[in-house]
Design a binder for these strands. Structure first.
Length: 882
RNA sequence: GCCGGAGUGGCGAAAUAGGCAGACGCGCUGGACUCAAAAUCCAGUGGUGGCAACACCGUGUCGGUUCGAGUCCGACCUCCGGUACCA
């Protein structure tokens, strides 16, 4: 066998050791301080691990290992978010049970993760599709059901008769199914909703207590969208009904010139006159056929129909025509608005299109050109009792006026809507709910949980829009053995988010069949100290989990109001991609050098036609020197077959279609897991988006190789360079500065600079003849969170027979961190002219005296008058001269 | 449009509290070792000028504050992420 650093033997050896010895087992209720460090668990897809997953996992692993060295009892678990659509779609195609697909995908993921040497406590592994897990997901649902936080509502779904199934919003394009192009209709269906809106205020207010990225907190605030305003009632002319609207700007009531109802608004029928009925019905049908996406994104041009009805403006008794339009959404506010076209761009466009009056009520704009919307501190006009008032006072005055007369009141409105919790799918948690013959609902008794997913051969949709469970008659019908009463089971299943809302709690007590987790253990481990994952879950997963956690807090299951105190998002890892361009018919292939770019789009140089990018796999790219005769010439990427076609290099999200996916397995087998981990952390700050360059892994492998050769000889034994004894002062200083730097950087999650410090120390040690053990050992410990396999191997070679995982972290000696002398930059008028080595104890006068006699400084001071001397000890000396 | 983040060598990046811009790695160049190559080791590497000492320029753009600005302030440009008829 080849001597030298060989990760392919070292790494499996230590991985097996850690597993056998359960090295990373977390101890429930130990005397040590606890540290709960959590990764966002993955969906085990068929395509395996991606280089993006291990980025966050490596970061948390470094921290987990570091905390163990620092004497913490660390909980660092991993599991599988394994319900979901891909396994079900695969089942429909191949007939393979999603459970089998899940089992084999989990095995692949687990193998890949274990080969990276992460220090998870595998005894706590969880899987959301395990009945002993989803029993508790169902249990939590029941607690919500009991507290009226889960309720049934008629909610439209994207129903596709052509496919006989319900589609997700992203599966619908232009009102047609993505697959097959069949028409899609909005069909109301009775579905479960979770009353997250009941927690809106707490979800919003408690954000302030969290150490989370400001951007995520801001996204959640926007998502919740709490707005203060007023609800105002507009009586309908000739009807007992009133139209209630929500507005953030009651001050503009005098500017209202018409009303608009959402097409689905319940009052539409009542206000519509017979003459308008046909038109109104036609418009309603058209709106019903559009998906939400179309109604918002695509329909920029205002459409609508007059109902024939009128409402009375409560502030001035003016009659306002009532229209319907799909720019008003039934799901926000009251589903109806007062239109103030002078000061709202949407209303302005609508008024222009249908020739409705536009009135100015806040001074300052030109409402003949556009709505004047910068009206936060304007002065009211044309507004009766409000004339001359500033906006803020007008809002108060009119709200009080409305309240006094019972025509409206101050109100708070949220953008957040209740959570649609039903899916018409097989591969999800069944609801623990029964329907009586009369259609009323009943909870499955808790002792009968879990409600198991039934076995079936067919995962195909039922054809009615119900889930495949609806076709399994033997499962659906249920007769109470005592009373003989007959029930039917709920056939919808829960969405993929469900299991993720509480998984961090199950790690605490993963095998408990009496409770979702033991209260004592919960109090010990919670809250999560650090949660790391991708920013794509900024809103939904993190908001839903906070919601469930607060529900569990209210019923006394958990002891903290929030699940995770600190959150960090790792930035996405991108890949270099190379592309040329083709026209629609693909008859021509053009390079970057042959096309024109306009607004980021490639255009044909002659026809001006917009060209489509065509990606080439990175391995196919031919590199060509710009100047063949110049050895230093830059190289450019070229098409492999076409001589003159230069490729465009772009950095983009990794995807199969772009040919820029990097497979971690390949990197690990070629360079080793330690080098892979090191590179992922060395690329740049964790939170930042950054491109992958496989060359960089090679640099890390070289570093590890140099560390190995520093301490080991050619036979794989401890090098004779390693000696007993103490280091000299310069080496001791180096070591302790590195200890301080690496410790600080790990705490700050600045792993890239911590690694740079380790490389520097290694480079320095290579110049030494002898490496004292008292230097080698701390060095190996400092390296161990980053490159644990190599560190264990070196630790063993240094004569230890146990893992280094719980060895105390080296402590920096403060007295060795300060140098006796410092190199001081000397400036004249802010420009560096020389440097001066001075003792840190030198006085200002001594330093200045030495500095002015430096030749280059003297030259710049010659014939000038010093007007000011700035001296910051140990930092800078600057002479301002005239 | 709105919200959030980022612009620094050929590339990834670093710079604690306003104090030597470019640590560290990749790449590249030269050299050593070698029959040769790989690996390894040594040296160099922001640009321009100069034999050199050194000088000038240089952190997206324009302006400001300061003895001194990558860092602070004002205006703008570009890119990335999120979100969007939310009344």
């Amino acid at each position: 066998m080849m001597a030298g650093y060989d990760p392919s033997t070292i790494e499996p050896k230590w991985q097996a050791y850690w597993l056998e010895n359960k090295t990373f087992r977390a101890i429930d209720g130990s005397d040590k301080p606890k540290y709960y460090i959590l990764d966002m668990y993955p969906y085990p897809s068929g395509s395996g691990l991606h280089v993006g997953h291990p980025e966050g996992y490596t970061a948390t692993d470094i921290l987990a290992r570091y905390r163990r060295h620092k004497g913490f009892n660390v909980l660092h678990p991993m599991g599988w978010d394994a319900f979901g659509l891909p396994a079900e779609q695969y089942a429909i195609k191949t007939g393979t049970h999603p459970r089998d697909t899940t089992i084999s995908n989990v095995a692949v993921f687990k193998g890949q993760i274990q080969r990276l040497g992460f220090s998870y406590d595998w005894d706590r592994e969880i899987n959301t599709t395990d009945p002993s897990y989803y029993k508790w997901t169902q249990w939590i649902f029941l607690q919500m059901y009991r507290r009226d936080l889960a309720y049934l509502a008629e909610v439209p779904v994207n129903w596709c008769p052509g496919l006989g199934t319900v589609l997700a919003n992203e599966e619908v394009i232009d009102g047609k199914s993505e697959v097959g192009g069949f028409p899609v209709y909005r069909k109301p269906m009775r579905q479960w909703m979770l009353r997250i809106t009941a927690y809106a205020d707490r979800l919003l207010d408690d954000l302030d207590s969290l150490d989370w990225p400001e951007s995520i907190k801001e996204m959640q605030r926007n998502w919740i969208g709490r707005k203060r305003g007023a609800e105002v009632d507009f009586p309908v002319v000739g009807q007992p009904a009133t139209v209630r609207v929500f507005t953030t700007r009651p001050d503009t009531l005098f500017g209202a010139t018409f009303m608009v109802l959402a097409p689905e608004h319940p009052l539409v029928e009542a206000v519509t006159t017979p003459a308008q009925a046909a038109q109104v019905r036609q418009y309603q049908e058209m709106a019903a056929r559009k998906s939400d996406l179309e109604r918002t994104d695509l329909a920029k041009d205002k459409t609508g129909v007059f109902t024939g009805g009128f409402a009375i403006n409560p502030v001035n008794d003016q009659q306002l025509p009532i229209w319907i339009s799909d720019y008003v959404l039934m799901s926000y506010g009251t589903g109806a608005i007062m239109a103030v076209p002078g000061h709202d761009q949407r209303d302005w466009e609508f008024a222009r299109k249908f020739d409705l009056p536009i009135v100015e009520v806040v001074q300052g704009g030109d409402i003949s050109q556009a709505a004047f919307t910068e009206i936060d501190d304007g002065i009211m006009v044309n507004s009766g009792i409000l004339d001359g008032l500033p906006v803020a006072q007008a809002i108060e005055r009119i709200t009080a006026w409305l309240e006094a007369r019972g025509r409206g009141q101050a109100a708070v409105n949220y953008r957040l809507r209740d959570w649609l919790f039903s899916r018409q799918r097989y591969w999800g948690e069944p609801f623990p709910i029964l329907y009586r013959q009369d259609g009323s609902t009943l909870a499955v008794p808790e002792e009968q949980l879990p409600v198991l997913l039934p076995e079936t051969d067919s995962y195909k949709p039922s054809g009615t829009g119900e889930s495949p469970l609806a076709t399994i008659e033997s499962w659906i019908s249920f007769t109470d053995p005592g009373t003989g009463e007959r029930f039917r089971r709920e056939t919808h299943t829960m969405p993929q988010w469900a299991g993720s809302c509480w998984y961090y709690l199950r790690y605490i007590d993963p095998h408990n069949d009496q409770a979702l987790c033991d209260p004592e253990k919960e109090r010990y481990w919670m809250p999560v100290d650090l949660y790391v994952g991708g920013a794509e879950h900024a809103v939904l997963h993190l908001l839903y989990a906070r919601f469930w956690h607060k529900v569990l807090y209210d019923i006394g299951v958990v002891s903290t109001p929030e699940p995770a105190m600190r959150l960090v998002n790792q930035g996405m890892i991108l890949g270099y991609a190379y592309r040329c361009f083709t026209n629609d018919s693909a008859s021509e292939i053009l390079g970057k050098n042959q096309v024109r770019f306009e607004n980021g789009l490639a255009k044909h140089p002659v026809t001006g036609e917009t060209l489509l990018p065509r990606y080439l796999h990175i391995d196919q790219v031919r590199w060509k020197k710009v100047d063949e005769d110049d050895p230093e010439s830059a190289t450019v990427p070229m098409h492999p077959d076409l001589e003159e076609v230069e490729l465009e290099e772009v950095v983009e999200k990794m995807s199969k279609s772009r040919g820029n996916v990097v497979n971690p397995d390949r990197i690990v087998s070629e360079y080793g897991a330690d080098a892979f981990r090191l590179y992922e952390m060395y690329m740049g700050p964790l939170e930042q988006v950054k491109p992958w360059r496989t060359q960089g892994v090679l640099g890390m492998q070289r570093f590890l190789n140099r560390v190995y050769r520093l301490l080991m000889d050619e036979q794989g034994q401890r090098s004779p360079r390693v000696v007993e004894g103490e280091p000299g002062l310069p080496l001791a200083r180096r070591l302790h500065r590195t200890i301080a730097k690496v410790s600080e950087d790990i705490e700050a999650m600045a792993f890239n600079t911590a690694i740079a410090a380790l490389i520097e120390l290694n480079n320095f040690l290579h110049k030494e003849q002898e490496i004292p053990r008292s230097v080698a050992e701390p060095f190996v410990l400092l390296l161990s969170p980053f490159a644990p396999h190599l560190a264990e191997e070196l630790w063993q070679a240094l004569g230890h027979d146990r893992t280094l995982a719980y060895e105390p972290w080296p402590c920096a000696d403060e007295s060795l961190l300060k140098e006796e002398t410092v190199e001081l930059p000397v400036q004249v008028n802010g420009k560096l002219r020389a440097t001066l080595v001075v003792s840190i104890s030198s006085s200002r006068e001594e330093v200045i005296e030495q500095a002015v006699s430096l030749p280059n400084v003297a030259a710049y001071l010659e014939g000038k008058q010093i007007v000011k001397t700035i001296y910051v000890p140990q930092r800078i000396l600057n002479f301002a001269v005239k």
